[in-house]
Each structure stands twice: as C-alpha cells, then as structure tokens.
Design a protein around this nucleic acid. Structure first.
Lengths: 158, 158
DNA sequence: CGTATTTAGTTTCCGCGTAAACTATTTTCT
DNA sequence: AGAAAATAGTTTACGCGGAAACTAAATACG
C-alpha cells in the first residue's frame, strides 16, 4: 500500500489536508479496500458483496418480496431486477409470483443457493478479520458499533 | 429510513442476522448514505465526491503527476484519465506535459478551479456534520480515527 | 361497476469505473 | 549506440448501477 504510493510518487509525499479526516473520503477508501479483500476470498464464485448479502437475506427470510429486500439493502428497484436475474440464472434463487398479488415477486433460495450460502458464510463474515489490519478486536467492535449508529441501524432485527 | 422499511415491507421486519455486524455491509450502507448527503449540498455543481477530492488534492499539491494522485486516492489510471478529462472540460484543472518527461501529465487548478474549491471547501467538509445523525462529536472523532486506522492512513501527511 | 390512482416490477437508455490492449516515451543492459 | 524492458497514460470494450418511462395488477372512488 505504501509501496503503491512511493512507487508512483515523483518526489514528495502528497499533502491531503483536512480531507484525511473527512468521513466521506475515509468511507470510500475503506470500502474499496474491503471490496478488494472480498474478492481475494469469495471472488472466485463471481459474486459481489451486494449479491452475497442478498442471498443471505433471502435465506433468512424465505418468500420475502423483492422490493422489500431492495428497500432494506438500499438497492434500487431497477438494479434489483437485474441482480436477481443474475442470481436466478446461476440457479441460486427462485422467483415466485404469488396468486394473491400477481404484481409481486417472492424470492427463495434454491437448494443450490442454500448450500452456497452455508458454505461461504464464514468466509464472508471473516471480512471482519482484524488480524489483517492493526486493529484490535475491541477497536473493531467499536468501529462496527459506531457505523451502525451512523447508518441508523442500531436496532437489532436479530 | 424506518419509514422506507415499513413502507415496502409486507408483514414482518426483515431478519438480517450476523450481517448486521458485517464491516463490509455497514461500510456499503454508510457510503451510500454519505453519497446521498453529498448531493444534497454539492450536487448542484454536478461534481461527485471523488471528483471534488481530486480537485482538493491538486489544489494542495500543484503540479502533481496524474498517476500519483490516482495511486494516492485509489483511482484506477483508466478512470483517472476520464475524470481529469471532465474536470479539464469544465475548466477547473489544467494539464501540462513537462519537458523532462514527455509521458507524464502534471496537474494544476485553474483560477476557476481554485475559486471553486475555496467556495465549496466548507460544504464538503461539513459532511462530518454529526448533528444529522445521533452521533456525538466525540463518537464522530472516534469513528474517523478508527477508519483511518482501518485504512492504514494514520500517518498524517499534514 | 367502471374509471382513476397507486403500487410492483421491468425495460430502456446512459454514464461511470475497470480490465485489457495499445501508444509513446524513457530507462536498462550489453 | 541499439535492442529489450519498463513506465505513463490513453483507448476500447464491457458490465454494473441509476433515472425515467413503461407495463401490469390492485385499490380507491364516485
């Protein structure tokens, strides 16, 4: 990381000023890094973090409406359609149109999908692995708590 | 937020399980929210967070190499080319090919760019505004500190 | 009941960000 | 010096994510 920096730098270090403490900036960098880390572990399956999360939620809430998931995970409806399309094509989720409301789409995991989530659950959650950074378990816990507060997701939906 | 949830939910609340405490998940949500907030304030100018950050860094480091900025801000070279192209077209940055290395591109802010950054600096940094969440100033400070640690940006480049 | 409104998803179109291939320049090596 | 390798950026092709317009179904309303 520092290598990447010096590698390309011409002479001096880059001055960043107050932006080093900008929440938006730090979140962006953190997310990029997390993303990269995700691919090191789960990327082989061609799934992205958001997609795995969707699988996860469907697994915990079988028969959930497509739009509900979209709203919960801040995924735009248009995107949701395509995302589910991909997962369906991979045989991981199944779409059902219920008789009582034929506009709706209810989602469930296929057997394959269930297996997939079960097998990769730990790998996905291991993102938190603080060993890789210099964070202590306590710090990581604090960080997660603060992020939950920031995002208004303190209430535990178990 | 809770409204969005209940609004679209059919019956019960969505169960999320351990993923509620997943760093990657929380970072994603946090970033989406920050992004939206950004547009409420600075979006009128048609600039995105990353673009403003680039302007900022060029302002602090005039004559910096394009690739150096890309590496520092985790922006891919290919993207950087287009991003700078946009900013140049808007008359905010100027590209110069130095005589000593004619492959390189050095960047500076135009007068217009300098003015723009000066005028919007405070709006951009106000993203941190903890008033909008229920975070206390101390919590926000802790959060930022932990994010810096997480991303390996603890060393202060002033 | 039949029309108007709302709701659920989908489709279309577009721009962003990326990987891979490419161009131009500089450095290395013999 | 001259060929090979490395470096800086750009171009091309492509998939993802989003806004807006659209379709289909359900509810409201007179």
């Amino acid at each position: 990381m520092q290598d990447t920096l010096t590698e390309t730098t011409d002479e001096t270090t880059v001055r960043m000023g107050e932006i080093q403490n900008s929440l938006g900036f730090l979140l962006r960098v953190a997310q990029i890094q997390t993303f990269e880390r995700f691919f090191e572990t789960l990327g082989d399956y061609g799934l992205k973090p958001g997609e795995f999360t969707v699988l996860w939620v469907i697994g915990l809430n079988p028969g959930l409406r497509q739009g509900t998931i979209a709203a919960t995970l801040s995924i735009k409806p248009a995107h949701m359609t395509k995302l589910i399309g991909r997962l369906a094509k991979q045989g991981l989720v199944a779409r059902t149109t219920p008789a009582d409301d034929r506009r709706a789409v209810r989602l469930t995991l296929t057997d394959q999908g269930r297996t997939f989530v079960a097998e990769n659950k730990s790998a996905f959650l291991a993102q938190n692995a603080f060993e890789r950074n210099q964070m202590s378990p306590e710090e990581m816990e604090t960080l997660i708590g603060l992020l939950r507060k920031l995002t208004g997701r303190e209430a535990d939906a178990s």
